[in-house]
Computed example of a mutant assay.
Amino acid sequence: MSQAEHHIETAQLRRSPRYGRLMVAGGVLGLVVAFVLTLAFDGTQVKSENTGVLYSMPQVLGFVALICVPIGVALGGAVALILDRVVGRRTRDVRIDRETVVDRPDAS
């Protein structure tokens, strides 16, 4: 025989932002910024003034992306923290109907 027990409880419901999604969006935005900055250079190759080495556009994109993507991820995390502080203040109480089912074997 199964026996069910009902409990009505109160809990606080709070919304929070998705940290991972905002950080990934910041990284993608950093990659877009790196691409735009790379296209801002003139010519197909960039020559270093200090070493005299010629860098191709994909190499320049890689170097600039190594700087822009982590900055974008950090900014996305900062936006998530700010949103968490602003949105997290608003909580509301909800009623929860909790049911526990206990299966007891027959004692026959």
Score class of each variant (00 low, 15 high):
V102E: 13
I96C: 09
R89T: 12
R85G: 05
L83R: 14
G88E: 07
A78K: 06
G76C: 08
A78D: 03
Q59R: 11
G62D: 07
G30F: 07
V24E: 02
S48Q: 09
T51W: 12
L66S: 09
D42I: 09
V87C: 03
I71C: 12
F35G: 14
R92F: 01
G88D: 08
R95I: 01
A40P: 02
R89I: 05
F63V: 02
R89H: 04
F35C: 10
C68Y: 04
L83K: 13
L66P: 00
L39V: 13
F41R: 02
V94A: 15
V102P: 06
F63K: 03
G26N: 07
R89F: 02
E99L: 13
N50I: 14
G88T: 02
A25N: 10
A65F: 05
V53F: 06
N50L: 14
V69H: 01
A34H: 00
V69K: 01
Q59I: 02
D84V: 00
A74E: 05
G30I: 04
R90Q: 00
V36I: 15
G30Y: 06
S48E: 14
G88N: 08
V46N: 03
L39Q: 14
S108E: 04
S56P: 10
T38Y: 00
V60F: 06
R104A: 04
V33N: 02
L39T: 12
Q45E: 15
I96R: 03
T91F: 09
G27W: 01
A78N: 07
I96P: 01
G76K: 00
R90L: 10
L61D: 00
S108T: 11
R90M: 06
P58C: 11
V46Y: 09
